[in-house]
Design a binder for these strands. Sequence first.
DNA 1: CTCGTAACTAGCGTAATGCAAGTTGCTAGC
DNA 2: GCTAGCAACTTGCATTACGCTAGTTACGAG
Lengths: 112, 112
Amino acid sequence: MDDDCRAAAIQCDEALTSVFGVLGKRWTGLVIGVLLERPARFAEIARAIPGITESMLSARLTELKGAGLLTREVLEGPPIASLYRLTPSGEALRPALTALGAWAQAHLGTAG
Amino acid sequence: MDDDCRAAAIQCDEALTSVFGVLGKRWTGLVIGVLLERPARFAEIARAIPGITESMLSARLTELKGAGLLTREVLEGPPIASLYRLTPSGEALRPALTALGAWAQAHLGTAG
DNA sequence: CTCGTAACTAGCGTAATGCAAGTTGCTAGC
DNA sequence: GCTAGCAACTTGCATTACGCTAGTTACGAG
């Protein structure tokens, strides 16, 4: 009925759908943004992101580890510690997140 | 106390924080992705995004309009219709979303 | 007047989030 | 040996966001 009598129906981009299956949840993008600066420990990430709770951070880290975007290394020192580090896949998000940050500074009144 | 005895504390990027205040909610990125293809009407957007409900779409469009990323034009034809169109700010997200899409195809098994 | 489409809005249940504590392992103080 | 404190999580409950089903207004067809 609607095959050609009107403009072709818009299709949602599959790639975007999968990206936002990950990034379209609260805190996920921020966690990756923090780890793009350098690998960090649990408490460091928590302190770097104002407002996030430990339970949310734990959940997000687990999800991102499951998605293969980061790894968790347990440092075996006397004080137990864990280090979260982006995988190459996670690192590959850097240009995209940089572009988003630049956009925010230009269009969301975040510039200094 | 911890100013220089260890690596400087990581700070969450303000720009990223504001971006994900908008994009870090379900469907928001997809709606923008659809409108990047061309301006569209309410029902077109709804059909383009499998799984979204009309109430969510309505809420997201209102938010994005409030954020200045899109405008709503009421077409005054006999059949009432509304057209949603990205503003220049919204259009400026194109390179960032393109980068995200490319990343997904390379790292999330979305490629065909 | 009934059916169908378009564009929303309203009400209610469920899943995701936010908040505060609790747990385990080691260090510091007395 | 005891309390106190940090690190890294986990658990339980309340709030919020989200998903689903209907309901509303307006127009064209039959």
